[in-house]
């Protein structure tokens, strides 16, 4: 698999590696997918990178590659920001080869990472017709998670037809941020757009939302999909090739 802009792959890894340290990458002719849960089984990430999004891609037989995202992250930190990236696995090999090429083709770096033997647990994610779908700037969502984490470790997300409200409370007191739906949309990327079939009010652990925001560099927008008593879906698109989707189980008032 070859990417002209290796930085896209680095952003994917940086978006995943806090939530899951290692994961099984499923490679087939259609591209690369990954699904993994965090250690407490509260959050899940689902990655799709379609083959047509790569500059070149070949997969002669399906492979499940156990990869340490922490190690992969360290290797990718050596990549130049404009480098192209090629990842390959030779048949019956126990390692993955990561090759980086500088833009003006004068520097070639090659790394080999040992593959891991992971038991791949796969969950069935039901197609959900969400009550509410929010699109907003990913930087804005990152900022809200950071601000709300000051006040407490849970965020209540309430949607109404006017907008969406994030609130948190804790020992210090409480705080809330309300975003009004954008009316005159000049730049789609900066708009707050809410499609709502019915209002929802759900509570989530903010530390997971903040971990999801590590994937924000992938896309200027984030999609949040909510339904009562259903895991939140937080989606960052990967331009022209797929997406990173995070799911987080809600908290319930005991």
């Amino acid at each position: 698999a070859r990417l002209l802009h290796g930085s896209i792959f680095a952003k994917v890894i940086e978006g995943l590696r806090e939530l899951v340290n290692e994961a099984t990458w499923e490679c087939s002719g259609n591209g690369i997918t990954l699904q993994a849960m965090d250690s407490s089984h509260v959050a899940l990430v689902s990655l799709v990178m379609r083959s047509e999004g790569f500059e070149s891609y070949r997969c002669d037989r399906n492979m499940s590659l156990g990869i340490s995202l922490v190690s992969m992250s360290k290797v990718l930190k050596t990549m130049g920001k404009d480098d192209s990236l090629t990842i390959r696995v030779n048949d019956d090999s126990d390692s993955i080869i990561i090759a980086m090429e500088s833009q003006n083709q004068d520097k070639f770096a090659d790394y080999e990472l040992r593959l891991m033997d992971l038991d791949s647990e796969h969950l069935g994610i039901p197609d959900t017709d969400y009550s509410c779908a929010i699109k907003m700037p990913s930087s804005e969502f990152s900022r809200i998670c950071r601000d709300m984490s000051i006040m407490g470790d849970s965020v209540l997300i309430c949607t109404t037809k006017e907008g969406v409200k994030f609130s948190a409370k804790g020992d210090l007191g409480q705080g809330s941020i309300r975003l009004v739906q954008t009316t005159n949309i000049e730049k789609e990327e900066e708009a707050v757009i809410i499609e709502m079939k019915e209002a929802v009010a759900l509570t989530f652990a903010v530390r997971y939302l903040s971990m999801f925001c590590k994937a924000a560099p992938l896309s200027p927008q984030v999609g949040l999909s909510l339904s009562e008593d259903t895991p939140l879906m937080c989606e960052f698109k990967i331009a022209e090739m797929g997406h990173v989707r995070f799911y987080l189980a809600p908290k319930i008032e005991d």
């Binding site: 509260v42 969950l123 189980a249």
Partner: peptide, 14 residues
């Protein structure tokens, strides 16, 4: 107190 759900409650163990 708010209890944290686990994903298994919502997603089937395929």
């Amino acid at each position: 107190v708010q209890m944290q759900n686990l994903l298994f409650r919502f997603f089937s163990d395929a």
